[in-house]
Amino acid sequence: MNSKEQVKIIKERSGTDASKCMKCGKCSGRCPAYNEMDIKPHQFVSMIEKGEIEKLLNCKAIYNCLSCFACVERCPRNVAPAAIIEAVRQEVIRMQGGNYINSEEIPQIVDEQIPQQLLVSMYRKFNK
């Protein structure tokens, strides 16, 4: 698959129209994980629109995005940066060897108190 097709698929998967962005930066102004995002939410929108996905596919931000939807809630133009981040994350974890955590690692990160909800959501977010 060439990267043009890949961009198209990611855009469709996100269900959001990045061309509506007016580059105000409110998403990044609101992001609670901003300092942990090596690619910032507004950059996801701009880079997907320009078709520059190489950096997106290799970034750490897709694992640090909390999916808290604050950026989506606040966007004045109905763009959903979190949905683009999710679409990129899916692109990565669906690739062979793309899983972010291995099941062998689980026992080390689990403690007595961890709710089932956390395990399942973590697994769904990071693995395929």
């Binding site: 955590i101 956390l118 973590m122």
Partner: peptide
């Protein structure tokens, strides 16, 4: 209405702690 750190508490515990 800010995020608690959600599911990253397993993979990036520092971030969850901060939040």
């Amino acid at each position: 209405n800010e995020c608690c750190g959600a599911y990253v508490s397993t993979t990036n515990n520092e971030l969850a702690k901060k939040k």
